[in-house]
Design a protein around this nucleic acid. Structure first.
Lengths: 344, 344
DNA sequence: TTTTTTTACGCAATCGTTCCCGGTAACGAA
DNA sequence: TTCGTTACCGGGAACGATTGCGTAAAAAAA
């Protein structure tokens, strides 16, 4: 079924004018007489004329739309980021195209390829946990395509980046556990090569050392899909609990890891915080309704989306190639609730 | 900063061919000699040529992309629907553009206008709770623009629709409350003119009557934004608890209503299910981790997205105007947990 | 050898819009 | 009368890709 829209030609034909005149009348050019303008404008209104953005894009070599690649929109953190992105983009007249990698490198590649082949003016991306090879993004960046990274960043590509002080988040969470009396603190993180994993675990390690507690690598487990699949969390926790010195607290360094820990404890009849304490990165807005209510490190997701978008639009609208790039760092918030009550 | 992509012209110039020849070589036309083909293909590969989808769209009058309008992607139900949509769309080579109305009519209008002005081939929409006037969609539909409604449908527009048997969902939830011994069952719903509200409350009413319990309109409250803002839920519950016959159970007819009820009870120190039972429509995957774990009516969101997309693609790819429209009805699932334990 | 067919490619129109050049009236001034 | 100005408007190229049609050269058939 084809849908035929009205074009500038239809107006020109009906009114006995040329397309140039109609175009100019619609754009309120000084070269067109007031009467002609009025006539064109009224007729355009009458037949509900809308300029074809596709044709405009072709001519202007810009689409006034930006692309987003996130792991999962179902993840509260990402949906909050997206809301932040939208809030700025719409203000500036940009449209937003959202795609999901589902933590798959292949999907990410597909999405980036599609988006980049001229249907967007710039890209906001938080790479999938599977993504080690960055050449797809590197190529684009080298050819001057505007890219801004948020949350998960890549050292080898020099462009604007927006991150949360993950190290501080990990540090504060761990410090809180230590000060609440926990002694065997395990950490659960996303894959190692991901920037946020390194930093969050780095903060965890620093907090331990600052409090004269030994860092034990066997207490740190990594999950390939960031907890997206329950089984990987189950496996990690199983192995933790099989060790001779069982953990009495867990620091989970990602949203899905945190909730899947809780799911695991519930399934196994392990009580939180009596048997084990739990704190994690999470942006879900139900953490205080959980059983027990969850202590979390919360990221300023909405703000992150806003900042990233502003940076990207700067890149897009800059006249000259940008060579100086910023990395903005936002601060996480620590929320203390029942899941890390002081150890008795 | 402008990003210059490689075009077919660059290849033609470099190889001393015409653009037609290059185009045909790339599309593997029989009219081109094997040697020329090889040469073109290799050079295209070398400079990483990608056809410009904008130019193709202009010529073919189709963009191979579909638009989505939902209230909130942060809502689990919608993000699951979107995943269902994507799963089908990508298989068929369609791209997906997601927009959010945030339950605002104005935002919905903006999004639909943008999407429809020729940048998408079809529309999947679940109108905002504020939307009473459907003329923006009606106009499009009358001009043959493919639209499929899901979840929230509109009687006055005759096109494909995908819904969940909301009446059955409301009926089953209410029946479960009755059979668990609750006597004063209140209902909290989205705005009245929304199809799903009518049906869910309709099911609630039918269940009461089938069990010889009087339907009391004062026990049914509506929230303009479907519980998106906590205050409207607070107000509705306040007024319910001020009545002389206080409810001993609540049936919440939307995701946000359900969780905000829980939030309210927690804030007021009202125990669930001892003081009041709670059951609601919800698609969040944390309901069993809540305190108490939540009895819910769950909708087959992913499947709904798949079915809606299949219907839409049928419309788009149909040669002749479609006059016969389907309304597919999917079945909800009832999950019984602690929040509706039998009354003592 | 001549005619026909096949092969392999180029020309130009097309999609909807903008914008650089022109062009032509009308009018006033010289 | 003639030139210059201003006010309006149209022709046509351009953006990138596809495609119907035309055609030269080569190959095959007569």
């Amino acid at each position: 079924m084809k849908y035929e829209a009205v074009t500038i030609k239809d107006i020109a034909k009906e009114l006995g004018l040329s397309t140039s005149t109609v175009s100019r009348a619609l754009r309120d050019s000084y070269e067109i007489s007031p009467e002609t303008k009025k006539m064109v404008l009224e007729y355009a209104e009458k037949i509900n004329y809308r300029p074809n953005p596709i044709a405009l894009s072709l001519k202007e070599k810009r689409t006034r739309s930006i692309g987003i690649v996130v792991a999962e929109i179902a993840n509260s953190f990402f949906s909050q980021v997206i809301n932040g992105i939208e809030s700025i983009a719409y203000d500036k007249g940009y449209n937003v195209i959202i795609t999901q990698s589902h933590e798959s490198f292949e999907r990410e590649l597909m999405n980036v390829q599609y988006l980049a082949s001229r249907s967007i003016d710039g890209l906001l991306i938080s790479p999938s946990s599977e993504t080690e090879d960055m050449s797809h993004l590197k190529h684009l960046h080298e050819r001057g395509f505007p890219i801004v990274f948020f949350d998960r960043i890549v050292d080898e590509i020099d462009t604007h980046k927006v991150i949360v002080d993950s190290r501080k988040g990990g540090y504060d969470a761990t410090k809180h556990l230590i000060e609440s009396g926990y002694k065997q603190i395990a950490a659960l993180a996303n894959v190692e090569y991901l920037s946020i994993s390194r930093d969050r675990v780095g903060g965890y390690q620093a907090a331990l050392e600052d409090h004269n507690m030994k860092y034990d690598a066997s207490l740190v487990k990594h999950c390939l899909h960031g907890g997206l699949v329950y089984e990987e969390v189950e496996k990690a926790l199983d192995s933790l609990f099989k060790q001779k010195k069982k953990p009495d607290a867990i620091f989970a360094a990602a949203d899905k890891l945190t909730t899947n820990c809780l799911r695991y404890f519930k399934a196994k009849g392990i009580r939180v915080p009596q048997d084990i304490a739990l704190i994690g990165f999470s942006n879900i807005d139900l953490t205080e309704l959980l059983s027990p209510s969850l202590s979390v490190v919360r990221q300023p997701a909405f703000e992150m989306g806003q900042v990233a978008t502003e940076l990207l639009l700067n890149l897009i609208e800059s006249k000259r190639p940008v060579k100086d790039f910023d990395t903005k760092m936002l601060q996480p918030d620590l929320f203390i609730r029942e899941s890390t009550s002081r150890k008795k």
